[in-house]
């Protein structure tokens, strides 16, 4: 049934640190690599070496530029800030993608809150992708079924893997350690503490989906202590040495 289960005590999810994400897309690639050969149908590509390549991805990274409203010393030309923004399924508590599903293919696990698609029952109507506010679902063009992040369910409970690998592929691979995996239903877990310490937030709470995944905000550019900005033009002037240096200093003394 695509009715939502009672909220589980355990809420597995991700915490993504927008302050440390460098936008390398390693999580995107690692996710595709693991999931194309893991749970369910492969993540197909259409026209991969052609003019308009496209394909199914469960995780995508957007890059935003933020122009500060109030800049350092109220200067209007303060430098802009770049924020890399990974976007994948947030495993919402009130997942709207689950309740709209007419076939019962979409469901939320009662034991850990992971949202999954039973690909054998999916008829590819695409309504769940319309219902998701976060663009987390993509209809695979080869298989004709809906694909989404499984939180690497075939890794996290997989006792055939070494223990350090029993986390989602994106988390395992992130070179900046910007991605964290854990139980957000447990206030004592490392991810919950991270959210509490760093003022973690959820996306678009006004859509009432109650996402489990959290984001950690990037520091404001104006909060970062750095050297005072200086005019770049001074760097362009070569420092005179030798006879010209002596002449330069002599002239400066006369000045």
């Amino acid at each position: 049934m695509t009715s939502l289960p009672q909220p589980s005590k355990k809420k597995l999810g991700l915490v993504i640190d927008l302050d440390t994400c460098v936008g390398c897309h390693a999580c995107v690639i690692s996710c595709k690599e693991w999931n194309t050969s893991g749970y369910g149908a492969p993540l197909s590509d259409q026209n991969p070496y052609g003019k308009d390549p496209s394909g199914t991805w469960l995780n995508r990274v957007h890059t935003f530029e933020i122009t500060p409203n109030v800049s350092r010393c109220d200067q209007p030309d303060a430098p802009a800030q770049i924020v890399h923004f990974p976007r994948s399924c947030l495993h919402c508590e009130d997942a709207p993608c689950v309740t709209v599903c007419p076939t019962g293919a979409s469901y939320k696990r009662s034991e850990d809150g992971i949202v999954l698609v039973n690909e054998d029952a999916c008829m590819g109507c695409g309504l769940c992708a319309w219902a998701c506010p976060y663009g987390a679902r993509e209809l695979d063009q080869a298989e004709g079924v809906m694909k989404k992040c499984t939180l690497c369910i075939d890794r996290i409970y997989n006792e055939n893997l070494p223990e350090e690998d029993r986390i989602p592929a994106c988390v395992r691979t992130c070179p900046a350690e910007a991605r964290h995996f854990g139980d957000l239903g447990d206030p004592e877990s490392s991810v919950s503490k991270l959210v509490a310490e760093r003022d973690g937030f959820t996306l678009m709470p006004e859509k009432y989906a109650k996402p489990v995944n959290h984001y950690l905000p990037p520091r404001s550019r104006t909060d970062i202590d750095g050297p005072e900005p200086f005019a770049l033009a001074s760097l362009a002037e070569p420092e005179a040495t030798g006879f010209l240096g002596w002449l330069d200093k002599a002239l400066e003394r006369l000045n």
Binding site: H62, E65, I66, A80, M204
Partner: peptide, 27 residues
């Protein structure tokens, strides 16, 4: 949508993919 409004004016610098995808065509 990104929850970053408090930092300033947010606008897209780079899309996640160079070509259109099912998601962009559909939504």
């Amino acid at each position: 949508a990104t929850g970053l409004e408090h930092l300033g004016k947010v606008h897209l610098l780079d899309r996640p993919s160079g070509a259109p995808t099912w998601l962009t065509k559909e939504l």
